[in-house]
């Protein structure tokens, strides 16, 4: 089984193979949160992970951090297999792998000053002298757009949600990580503040050479920041593609439905024109056989119940797990237009 999966990246910083996370419930059932997914994240890349609640996107990002370690599968970060590291080794490696959470307020200690919060990772790992640490903290605050001399001694209650998220970002960057995992990092913020934080994350990525996994439910937000996007449904990846391609020409029926459901700020689009996905996702304790999306899929046939569709490469870099993928009409259109243009030029 040691073949190179399709769509793997040339020099991956993170390589996830057959990742499976299962939880037991009180009544003896098993929640199949993530079921055998594989993906790579190349150095310097931003991978978006989207899906609705319960699809396993957060569980995936936490399993990468070994919070908690996955039930099965491998997570290789910078050449080291994280699932088999000793706890000390794991702690050391995790300094390179930082996370930003959804709720910026509850992820900060209410009793400590901003300065202390940002300095804590540095103090824990005894990086530099106290004086050097302080200088570093001020540098970080400046980087995320906070004036350290004004806000350094304040506590979290004196900040808005957007500012708290800036503090979380500064803390995550303190140890100069190579990879940043943002789990719904802007979902709790207002649109105008969300835009500020998204722009800040992009800026930090450039400035600190970060590789990013960006987990979110909002497809428009994910498109904005991601180089590639993976769409998840009920613990499986349905589709992975370069961001612009995925949005222009989705091949999986779920991706297409998800894109169509997003309300657009355009009054000429009447809600009735858009096909709405019926039903709700099935329970992850008892996922459907075969393709997990088949119970809501407009195209489902007998084969979809019998056979699990494998993630296969349909065009370079575009992987889809579907027996009857959508024709990429947009891609065809683009090609046709190009050909027409070529013909005209001739």
């Amino acid at each position: 089984m040691n073949f190179q999966p399709l769509g793997s990246r040339p020099d991956p910083l993170l390589s996830v193979r057959d990742l499976t996370v299962e939880f037991g419930t009180k009544d003896g059932q098993t929640v199949h949160a993530v079921s055998g997914i594989s993906f790579d994240v190349a150095m310097g890349e931003t991978l978006g992970l989207v899906g609705e609640s319960g699809c396993g996107k957060s569980t995936t990002s936490r399993a990468v951090m070994q919070l908690p370690p996955p039930t099965a599968g491998s997570v290789v970060f910078d050449g080291r297999e994280l699932t088999s590291l000793s706890s000390l080794e794991l702690r050391k490696t995790r300094t390179q792998l930082q996370m930003i959470f959804q709720d910026p307020v509850s992820s900060l200690n209410p009793r400590r000053s901003v300065e202390d919060i940002i300095a804590e990772p540095l103090a824990t790992w005894s990086r530099g002298t106290p004086k050097e640490r302080k200088a570093k903290v001020y540098e970080l605050m400046e980087a995320v757009g906070l004036d350290g001399t004004v806000v350094g001694k304040r506590r979290r209650r004196e900040f808005s949600g957007g500012q708290c998220q800036r503090i979380s970002i500064a803390r995550a960057l303190a140890l100069e990580p190579r990879m940043l995992i943002c789990d719904e990092a802007v979902s709790a913020l207002d649109v105008s503040v969300q835009a500020q934080i998204l722009n800040l994350l992009q800026e930090m990525k450039q400035r600190f050479d970060l590789t990013v996994i960006f987990v979110a439910h909002d497809l428009a937000v994910v498109k904005r920041v991601s180089d590639r996007v993976a769409v998840m449904y009920l613990g499986k990846i349905c589709e992975i593609a370069p961001a612009d391609l995925l949005y222009a020409a989705p091949r999986h029926h779920y991706t297409a439905a998800l894109l169509a459901s997003i309300p657009q700020p355009d009054p000429t689009i009447r809600p009735g024109d858009v096909p709405v996905l019926s039903g709700e996702p099935p329970s992850p304790t008892d996922p459907p056989t075969g393709c997990r999306f088949r119970t809501r899929c407009p195209r489902a046939e007998d084969r979809c119940a019998a056979e699990v569709p494998e993630l296969t490469e349909h065009s370079p870099g575009h992987l889809v797990a579907c027996h009857f993928p959508l024709e990429s009409s947009v891609a065809v259109d683009v090609l046709r237009r190009q050909t027409d243009a070529d013909v005209l030029r001739l």
Binding site: A220, S226, D227
Partner: peptide, 10 residues
Amino acid sequence: SIPKLDEPSG
């Protein structure tokens, strides 16, 4: 400030 689907990523 709303991210729109028809704008290119980045």
